[in-house]
Computed example of a mutant assay.
Amino acid sequence: MAKRTDLTTYDYRKKRARFLAESDVCHLCGHAGADVVDHVQPVAAGADPEDTSNWLPAHGVKRCPTCGRNCNGAKGAKTRPTGLKTSRDWYTA
């Protein structure tokens, strides 16, 4: 099982920075400026912290500059509920 310290290694931080540089749109609210990687399947539940297929960008350390939410903090250690509408969904409706 992965440990929380696995999330602080230099290699992990470099990989996370590259990931967020490629896409900073929060998967929870749909706004730009995501600053953390959300592990869809939680690391605490045994997910590999470096498996990028389990990563989605989210707001966390900094709140969303558009709606002010701490998206990842509000979600907590749960998987994203299905059918949740994000701001992006409302614009396309």
Results as ranks from 00 to 15, higher is better:
Met1Glu: 14
Ala2Leu: 12
Ala2Glu: 08
Lys3Thr: 13
Lys3Trp: 05
Lys3Ile: 13
Asp6Leu: 10
Thr8Lys: 14
Thr9Gln: 09
Thr9Ser: 13
Tyr10Pro: 06
Tyr10Ile: 10
Tyr12Lys: 01
Tyr12Ile: 01
Arg13Val: 11
Arg18Lys: 10
Arg18Pro: 01
Phe19Pro: 05
Leu20Gly: 01
Ala21Trp: 07
Glu22Leu: 11
Ser23Gly: 01
Ser23Ala: 04
Asp24Leu: 03
Asp24Ile: 00
Asp24Met: 02
Val25Leu: 06
Cys26Thr: 02
His27Asp: 01
His27Glu: 03
Leu28Trp: 01
His31Glu: 08
Ala32Arg: 08
Gly33Lys: 02
Gly33Glu: 03
Gly33Thr: 07
Ala34Tyr: 02
Asp38His: 13
His39Tyr: 12
Val40Tyr: 09
Val40Arg: 15
Val43Glu: 14
Val43Ser: 15
Val43Thr: 15
Gly46Arg: 12
Asp48Glu: 12
Pro49Asp: 13
Pro49Cys: 14
Ser53Val: 13
His59Cys: 09
Gly60Pro: 00
Val61Asp: 07
Val61Asn: 00
Val61His: 04
Lys62Asp: 06
Lys62Glu: 09
Arg63Asn: 07
Arg63Phe: 04
Cys64Asp: 03
Cys67Asp: 04
Gly68Pro: 01
Gly68Asn: 14
Arg69His: 00
Arg69Phe: 02
Asn70Ile: 05
Asn72Val: 04
Ala74Lys: 07
Ala74Arg: 09
Ala74Cys: 00
Ala74Ser: 03
Lys75Asn: 02
Gly76Asn: 06
Gly76Phe: 02
Gly76Arg: 06
Gly76Asp: 04
Ala77Tyr: 12
Thr79Asp: 04
Thr79Phe: 04
Thr79Gly: 11
Thr79Trp: 07
Arg80Trp: 05
Arg80Phe: 03
Pro81Cys: 10
Pro81Arg: 09
Thr82His: 14
Thr82Cys: 10
Lys85Arg: 14
Ser87Ile: 11
Asp89Leu: 06
Asp89Val: 05
Asp89Glu: 12
Asp89Gln: 07
Asp89Cys: 07
Trp90His: 12
Trp90Met: 15
Thr92Ser: 11
